[in-house]
């Protein structure tokens, strides 16, 4: 998709800026208060303000799924979400999936099935898969593939990703 360089912008901005807004987020069960600009995305808030760099920026346009996180337990695209709009929300990132020193079943399954190569898409894949398990709509391999299609893997680890999710489904009591 075509990008616009900053040079193409009109030089004079007449729009007044607004002071930073104070918001509260519960990120991985920890309450955090942060000052964000209205245009700060949730992705940038996580990575740049809270230094949680596990969540990745791929396309920044909703097209790759690398930035997938869970908000109130639902998977969403954090690059197209404004942080201010999620004031008060509960956010779970890849850093928050392991509990009491034990990997999340999906993390273990991704290791068991070698479900990545470079690993760049993996945090998004795993958060997306966690959302998929919570939704409970995917029962068959075709349904897993379809409902994971929002996560692109440039290394093409798809077959192993599907196998890992199937394994995790078994562990969490879902039919595979």
């Amino acid at each position: 998709m075509a990008r616009t360089s900053t040079a193409a912008r009109p030089s004079k901005q007449t729009i007044p800026t607004q002071d930073k807004i104070s918001i509260a987020l519960t990120v991985n069960n920890v309450e955090r208060t942060l000052q964000v600009s209205p245009w700060t995305t949730l992705l940038d808030a996580l990575r740049d303000h809270l230094e949680l760099t596990g969540t990745k920026k791929g396309c920044d346009h909703g097209q790759c799924g690398a930035c997938t996180v869970l908000v109130e337990g639902r998977r969403i695209i954090s690059c197209l979400t404004l942080a201010v709009m999620k004031d008060g929300a509960k956010v779970t990132t890849i850093e928050g999936l392991a509990a009491n020193g034990a990997l999340h079943p999906l993390q273990q399954a991704f290791i068991d099935h070698d479900a990545f190569q470079c690993g760049y898409c993996t945090p998004g894949q795993i958060c997306s898969a966690a959302g998929l398990l919570a939704e409970g709509k995917a029962k068959t391999v075709n349904e897993i593939r379809e409902l994971m299609s929002g996560n692109i893997c440039r290394c093409g680890a798809y077959p192993n990703i599907v196998a890992a999710i199937q394994q995790a489904m078994g562990q969490t009591g879902e039919k595979s």
Binding site: G65, T68, L80
Partner: peptide
């Protein structure tokens, strides 16, 4: 349409008002 993550965010009203995906519409240099 879209992906499950996007469908979780996209609203019924917003879906009606989404704009075209014509690449020139997106490219302010054209």
């Amino acid at each position: 349409g879209a992906s499950q993550q996007l469908r979780n965010m996209a609203s019924t009203g917003g879906n009606l008002l989404q704009r075209t995906r014509c690449a020139y519409f997106y490219d302010t240099a054209t």
